[in-house]
Amino acid sequence: MSMTSTQQETQTRSWWRQNQQRITPWLFLAPGLLMFIIYVIWPIFSSFRLSFFEYDGLGEKVWLGLANYQELFSDRAFKTSLRNNVIWLLMYMLAVPAGLFIAIFLNQTVMGIRIYKSLFFFPFVISQVVVGLMFAWFYAPNFGLFYKVIEFFTGKGIAVLADPHLATYGIIAAGLWPQIAYCMILYLTGLNNVAPDQIEAARLDGAKGLKMLWYVVLPQLRPATFIAVVVTVIGALRSFDLVSIMTNGGPFGSTRVLSYYMYEQALSEYGYRMGYGAAIAVVLFAIMMVFISGFIWKMVRDEREGN
């Protein structure tokens, strides 16, 4: 009798013993996973669902099938947004080499270098809204510094944000300011980890300047470059705050990006086409997924190789 009970005990105990290695991580992950499912996974699928309906937030949802997506194809505002997103993506990439350049420039030991470093890092610390406002005033017609300087040299000022051809580039320039600072800080930490003996060896072999940078330093900075590209791509695709602060998508919709157009259609004062907004969100999500799965694939591959 007593024998069987101890046997049972060891059996139950051993079930936990046998499996605890497998179960424990899931137990620790459970709270985070739960939040992730409720606040990320579920909304994604509910956006997918909503994109097949016409819904104004008040009345009944009306099933439309793919009509929202069909409309996207003939919607010029959507095309403008898509084109601007591509421009953002391309121009934003400038932040990576610019950040590298500044990081190399600042990676020296002179008096007060910490102050210079923090000054260069400063734009990343301030809010995007503040950056947007500052640049909006910088470009402002009649009193903005940029406008005045151009007026001084050419006799006629340029109101960047009023010009449908220039406005997007003006906003991207504002966005690059903090983004370059971000890339710079990534490279600065990367440069700290560059092996001095390799530099020494390369120097003995006569490597200098650009060759040294390209063949010796940059390969060692690959992890920093990877992160810098990832944050820049994602930063470019989710650009919203600057557009909203600086132009509201104008003049006449020429600076819209997908995230802003989605907000306009679904939630702004003149919007409340929830279904159409959701369809735009799905397209943006698909574009992001292309990049994100690429990044994840690369990370997994590196990890496997590393081990």
Binding site: Y139, A140, P141, N142, A159, V160, L161, A162, T247, G250, P251, F252
Partner: peptide, 15 residues
Amino acid sequence: TENHAALDWQDAAAL
């Protein structure tokens, strides 16, 4: 007014 697309209504009031 030129550049009105970049002006708020209060900016134009200042003009």
